[in-house]
Design a protein around this nucleic acid. Structure first.
Lengths: 345, 345
DNA sequence: CGTTTTCTGATGTCCGAACCTCAGAATGAA
DNA sequence: TTCATTCTGAGGTTCGGACATCAGAAAACG
């Protein structure tokens, strides 16, 4: 609270360097018209005094506002609903920082729709965060946005070959591997079949998780045989049907891994078959449902990517890029969270 | 980057409410001299327009600087060194936000020393973050700080009965339970003894982890017998000696849980005994060492509390408290991270 | 009704940096 | 030495809110 502790301002730097405020300002903002020797003196003074520009003052002086668009899938599975909620929170926070978020919901499974929605953002926003489908049309749209000077970050699901500025999300191969290791260890050396349910292999994150999972099980747990992946389209009814069928038709089923959404259906099937206590069931995304399933012992582990963190991180990356402010990259790494019954938030 | 999108300022609110800027300002800053009816009109206008004060402008106008002190243990175990490093990073970030951090290293095991160090901070800081020992003397010192108007947060290890503003850290009972469940499941139904090593039961976090751990093992894994806890004082040589002795004297040892630091010693003992592949070893704090142990299969899981997150969180809590700014409480929850070989950062 | 008290408006300064202009100084080239 | 071309200094304005002062208006009071 003290007003006594005097900050070092650009004034002080100028005085220390023996130049005027204007010159110091020219050097720090990279404006032309300063001799090299003079510029060095200023930079020396900055280093000597440990000058740090006052962020608040800089922002105020710049007086810019930033408009961001978050493009989220229209299909409302629970995780995406949570993400949308967190984006709303983030918007609330950004509003005090001269930045505004619009949310756009599009059918992410339709590459054409997504791509043209993205192209429609050109000129209207300074930054875009998108839950992207990895498809050539979408990649081209992202590159167009980037080329038009809009900062683009991919959210949750990446398009690595595009020119996006940053990917905010987890390493899904590693997430799949993590699920594999957990199932391998939790099945405790038993021999048997493992059911694998994916939303759709068209989503890069699902495909990657599946890859990492089978890689670990095939390589390190030969006693476990992974059954052919079943597509659920992330729908509860379909996951329930699939899980019921697996439970019926594979009598040696020891574990289930659900790569996508629809855990409720699986939990229902497991409970109906009375297999909660001996069947290992691992899925993604901590929700009200999945935490309940963990507590009841229907699920054994949940692998999570924090929706709030991802939303805030995307906003921070966009904001700091647009405002030319430094970024704490370490803070922007999204963790692969493992939740057991015991470490629920 | 647009300058076109006009923010809503207090001017707009005043106009909308049909009052002057001065009156609107009086209402928002809780200054006296405004009739109730008028104040309501202003508040209505705020709500109608969705006015959000510009954080940057507010900070600049307030023109205050904040001084924080981070009190860390002098005994340099790896985690604490990492924490100190992260505090330095945080200081770097805070410097652009009118806030300064000093770091003080004291012997945290000596309650008298810690308490008097804390009392010495009165009047010199606006906020204090302290890795606290739960001891009456220390609690009293924290309460004195609080009473003198200094915001105090406990970091990593809490003093729940004190008047600290906030605890930045994990639920250590839950962390111990998590370790218990992991060991229970990873031992795969085997019968045998489990070694338990603590730094010192004087540290609240160690005691709590031990409690949670034994609670789970006793309650849910009757095949595992937890041996009497051994004190290591967080030193590698002592943990190595303890682990070696356990390996020697308990032939049915199936798992080891290290509550504190000193994982390097345990890893050495396990490797020497050639038990890396069958003995389950779980410890805390992700470091260069423990990630290597995970990759090599010497350790099976590491439970972590992110030092960077804790440091930033403490700073944010102190800053927002002192500056009277809102806090995103969700962002300040420290997770109990579980790391396997597969989800290492 | 006048008078006191309580409100309200007008106006200003300040915070620190970004960005601008213009005059004058220093420097280089001819 | 002169003239053109860089540099540099001095000064101002702006951003939006915090905080202060003072005059005048409205309300409360006797």
């Amino acid at each position: 609270m003290s007003r006594g502790v005097s900050r070092i301002t650009l004034q002080d730097v100028a005085r220390e360097a023996g130049v005027s405020l204007a010159t110091a300002d020219r050097v720090l903002n990279g404006r032309a018209g300063v001799r090299g020797a003079t510029a060095d003196r200023v930079r020396d003074a900055v280093a000597r005094l440990g000058y740090r520009p006052n962020l608040a003052a800089a922002r105020l002086a710049r007086g810019e506002t930033y408009r961001f668009c978050f493009v989220l899938p229209a299909g409302a599975n629970v995780f995406m609903r949570m993400l949308a909620e967190q984006v709303a929170n983030t918007a609330n926070w950004l509003a005090t920082n001269n930045a505004y978020i619009d949310t756009l919901r599009v059918d992410v499974f339709a590459p054409e729709t997504l791509a043209s929605a993205l192209e429609g953002l050109i000129g209207r926003y300074d930054g875009v965060a998108v839950v992207a489908l990895d498809h050539p049309r979408v990649r081209a749209a992202i590159d167009d946005l980037t080329a038009s000077g809009i900062a683009v970050v991919t959210l949750v699901s990446d398009v690595p070959s595009s020119h996006r500025l940053h990917y905010v999300g987890i390493d899904n191969i590693a997430a799949g591997r993590t699920a594999g290791t957990l199932i391998g260890r939790f099945t405790a050396g038993r021999r048997g079949a493992v059911g694998l349910i994916v939303g759709t292999p068209a989503l890069r994150d699902h495909a990657e998780r599946q890859f990492g999972f089978t890689q670990v099980l095939a390589g390190e747990y030969p006693a476990l045989k992974v059954l052919a992946a079943q597509e659920s389209l992330d729908e509860d009814e379909r996951t329930e049907a699939i899980a019921s069928r697996l439970l019926r038709e594979a009598p040696d089923l020891v574990a289930l891994y659900n790569v996508g959404a629809g855990n409720r259906g699986i939990a229902a099937a497991i409970s109906a078959a009375n297999r909660a206590s001996d069947l290992i069931f691992i899925g993604h995304d901590l929700t009200e449902d999945t935490s309940r399933f963990l507590l009841r012992g229907v699920m054994d582990a949940v692998i999570n990517q924090d929706a709030g963190h991802q939303s805030r991180s995307a906003a921070r990356v966009l904001l700091s890029h647009c405002a030319g402010e430094p970024l704490l990259s370490e803070q922007e790494r999204i963790r692969i969270d493992i939740f057991l019954r015991d470490n629920l938030p």
